[in-house]
């Protein structure tokens, strides 16, 4: 750590009233060397004095009275969405299966049309499975997923 960095650290401690006597001596020594910081300290002290006399407004008590209820509702809704999604996937899969079954057994429909429809559905299923698999693999192996960008 350079002397100037040390000085900045000591200034922060001074402003927060967390400076020890020995650190004060060190601060004064460094201030003799870096004189321009003296005025900086005075201005920072004024700002600190203002902020010391202020606080963050606390929201009305109703806000915190209903806080947990809102968190609880969100948790509950999240679970509801998961159940709903699973149900929807089951129904859609069953519907598709039945539709394909009907198509194959329908003698009136041209073979080429059957192949076309089956191709579209098969492609769709492969695409969905591929995307889901990619998401799962990325979720498990991406070591940078928690990195703050």
């Amino acid at each position: 750590m350079t002397e100037e960095e040390k000085l900045k650290e000591l200034i922060v401690k001074l402003l927060d009233n967390e400076i020890t006597d020995s650190e004060k001596i060190e601060l004064n020594r460094l201030l003799e060397k870096f004189k321009h910081y003296k005025s900086e300290i005075e201005e920072m002290k004024k700002l600190k004095e203002v902020s010391r006399n202020m606080k963050l407004k606390t929201p009305s008590s109703e806000v915190f009275d209903t806080y947990w209820t809102k968190v609880y509702n969100r948790i509950e809704r999240g679970i509801a969405w998961i159940i709903f999604s699973i149900g929807a996937v089951i129904l859609i899969t069953y519907g598709l299966f039945k539709a394909v079954e009907e198509l194959i057994s329908d003698g009136k429909l041209e073979t080429i049309v059957k192949i076309g429809i089956i191709g579209v559905l098969a492609g769709l299923v492969i695409l969905i499975v591929s995307v889901i698999r990619e998401k799962i693999i990325m979720g498990k192996t991406d070591k940078y997923k928690e990195v703050k960008r």
């Binding site: 203002v50 902020s51 006399n53 202020m54 606080k55 407004k57």
Partner: peptide
Amino acid sequence: YEALELIEEPSADVRELVEANDLHNIL
């Protein structure tokens, strides 16, 4: 949103300065 307010018993000179200049909002 104006999130700051004076503490209950600020020093008199700070109160005057803050109120005269709308300092909590500027800050």
